[in-house]
Design a protein around this nucleic acid. Structure first.
Lengths: 115, 115
DNA sequence: CAGAATCCACCGCGATACTG
DNA sequence: CAGTATCGCGGTGGATTCTG
C-alpha cells in the first residue's frame, strides 16, 4: 500500500480527497459500482480519457486498495478491475454524488428556463 | 450563474465533480458545514492554501451558487461566506467523505501495526 | 482585512510510438 | 488487448506586490 504522504491531515477528509480526488477517479469508481469492468470497457465508457491516464488512475486506486486488478494470463491479455472491500465502502458516497449531480443539472435547466 | 461548460455529461456525476472537484473546494465546504466563516478564518483553518487560491475557489463556489458571499461595508472590510440552500444539500456528502477519511486512516494505522 | 494583478515554475496530462 | 516510454505543451497554482 502506498504510504501516507503525511502522517497528519488537518482534517481526515483530506485523506478521502487524496484517494478519490484524482481527475478521473470518481468517474472510474462510478462505473465500477455497476460491476467489474475490463480495461477496454472502461475506455469505452470514458471516451475522453487517454490510455495513459486510465492506466495511471487505475494504478493509484489499486495502490490505495480501493480497487482490485485481476490479470488473466492469456492471449490476448485480459485485465479486470473491480471494487475492493474498502472500495465498496465508497459506494454510498459515489451514489450520492451521482444523484446530486442529476438534481443540480435539473435545477440549472429549470432556472435557465425561468430566465 | 456560470453556464455549463457542456450541455451534456456522460454521467451526471461529472457535474458534481465540476462543482466540488476543485483542489480546495471540498475542504472549504467542509469547514463551512460548521457555520459561516470570514475569509481570515478560512485562511487560518487552511494554512497551506494561498490567498489567491482561496479567493479563486470561493469565487467559483459562489458562481455555482454553492456558497453565499456577504460583504459588510466597513473598515476594515469584513466578508463572510456561508453555505447556500443548494450548498446545504451537499452536507451529507461532505460529512460522509469526512467520516470515510477517518475510517480509512484508522484502517491504515491498524494495518501498518500488523506489519 | 480582503482581494486584485503579475510573473513564472512546475508537472499534469495529452499525443505518439513501441512492447509482449 | 493492455500497458509502458518519451516528449512537450499549457494551465494550475505559488510567490510577491499593490489597492481600497
Amino acid at each position: 500500500m502506498k504510504s501516507l504522504k503525511k502522517d497528519y491531515y488537518n482534517l481526515p477528509v483530506e485523506a478521502t480527497l487524496e484517494v478519490i480526488g484524482g481527475k478521473w477517479k470518481t468517474l472510474i469508481l462510478c462505473h465500477l459500482t455497476y460491476g467489474s469492468k475490463r480495461t477496454s470497457e472502461l475506455k469505452k465508457l470514458m471516451p475522453d480519457i487517454t490510455q495513459k491516464m486510465l492506466t495511471q488512475q487505475l494504478r493509484e486506486l489499486e495502490e490505495d486498495e480501493i480497487i482490485i486488478r485481476t490479470v488473466y494470463n492469456q492471449v490476448p491479455p485480459k485485465v479486470v478491475y473491480e471494487l475492493s472491500e474498502v472500495g465498496e465502502t465508497l459506494k454510498s458516497i459515489i451514489d450520492q454524488m451521482c444523484e446530486w449531480g442529476e438534481q443540480y443539472l435539473n435545477r440549472k435547466t429549470l432556472s435557465s428556463k425561468d430566465a
